[in-house]
Design a protein around this nucleic acid. Sequence first.
DNA 1: TAAATAGTGTCTATCAGACATTATCTG
DNA 2: CAGATAATGTCTGATAGACACTATTTA
Lengths: 231, 231
Amino acid sequence: MIAAKISGQSGTWVAPIATVDVVILKLTGKTLSVLLSRRAEEPAKDAWALPGSFIRSNEDRSLEDAARRTLASKAEAQSPYLEQLQTFGGPDRDPRGWSLTVAYFALLGRNAIDPPGSGRWFEIRKSGIDVDLPFDHKDILAAALDRVRRKVEYSSVPVHLLPDAFTLSELQEVYETLLERPLDKSAFRKKIAAMDFLEPIAGERRRGSNRPAQLYRARAAGELVLFDRLV
Amino acid sequence: MIAAKISGQSGTWVAPIATVDVVILKLTGKTLSVLLSRRAEEPAKDAWALPGSFIRSNEDRSLEDAARRTLASKAEAQSPYLEQLQTFGGPDRDPRGWSLTVAYFALLGRNAIDPPGSGRWFEIRKSGIDVDLPFDHKDILAAALDRVRRKVEYSSVPVHLLPDAFTLSELQEVYETLLERPLDKSAFRKKIAAMDFLEPIAGERRRGSNRPAQLYRARAAGELVLFDRLV
DNA sequence: TAAATAGTGTCTATCAGACATTATCTG
DNA sequence: CAGATAATGTCTGATAGACACTATTTA
């Protein structure tokens, strides 16, 4: 790699290295998990890290393209939710020099498939994950979790962590998992109904000797609905 | 400028051009205005555009540094609010090639000073601004306005558009301007009091033959307070 | 019919908004 | 005192949350 030189009023300097990184999240049971891949190259060779890629100017038509390309190489999902998170940059985050990464986060439904050799899922406990991340990937992961958890308060984020069809009890469980507090069933259902972003679909879910549950789906798959009040 | 070549699995490509752009906003009367500067260089020489700069790897310690440097060259404010907005990138947004810009927005208080020759303020009307912006700067401006207006619903954003000391009536007026709807005085004051992010300071504001108004200031200057309910 | 979960109804404290009233200043 | 804006009080409808109750299934 040849560093690009730029000349300006304050002298001559080198263009930053530009990458995208994707925080890929799904639920494993009641726990959020993040998909990490083992780095094949230096720096931090063999370390578990967030999946990332250089931005390829000969191939990518946009930043989101680059993120989708990175995501697609690691997981297949029917309608993954992908959102730009934040851009991180600085002289010290990568030993190769001044670098910036446009970070995205993706939410996968329960029926997502990971291709073989694509990486490993790490459960996110209160103490964090069981591995040290290179670069500033710990900060990026923290920012993604912060964003997701905050958005749960006023959006349909949890829908994207469920399969296409789900019950209201399942949806409530995901809200509770992410908010880390119990919700009242009656109040929850009133709010969800008022937001009007779900529709009942044919079929019921039976999972025991009890009344079966109605199945629902999101009206707009892959889209996020913002609420006009808080959960 | 020499383009950086990168080699990878999918061939050889060129590193993107990396810049920061800043959407600098303040209130002129009851209208939001944006600070534009006249471009000194090609491309789009002589056009009014968002203030921006290359990221200088020899000088900037972070992306925010680069944004603050750009902001400081255009305006002086006691405690400007600066927030990363979004990163825009693609092959066609700049004729020089694949480029990305990390966009920030800044909110200036009413007593901010613009150094001479720093640019011109353009009022933002419903129809937009009175000038065509080059590159994708129209999209960036729209994203900034969207973010600011959305955040008004659940944060102390309007405080940063006022001088250090202000009255509750002035604060309500800014909320109303940005939300484009009237608010009830009694309800507004109850909410602001509940959020507990203001403190009364010595002094009153007199502006007519009527009862003078108590002055307040934000407890944490330059900080944004997020509310736990909507305005 | 017992047990379990789904789904709904009822009650109440709280609160946002509408509106009225009081407070304080100048001319 | 009239007129203006600041500041606060009162009332009411809406609703979130607590909790109880009904519905529906299997063993």
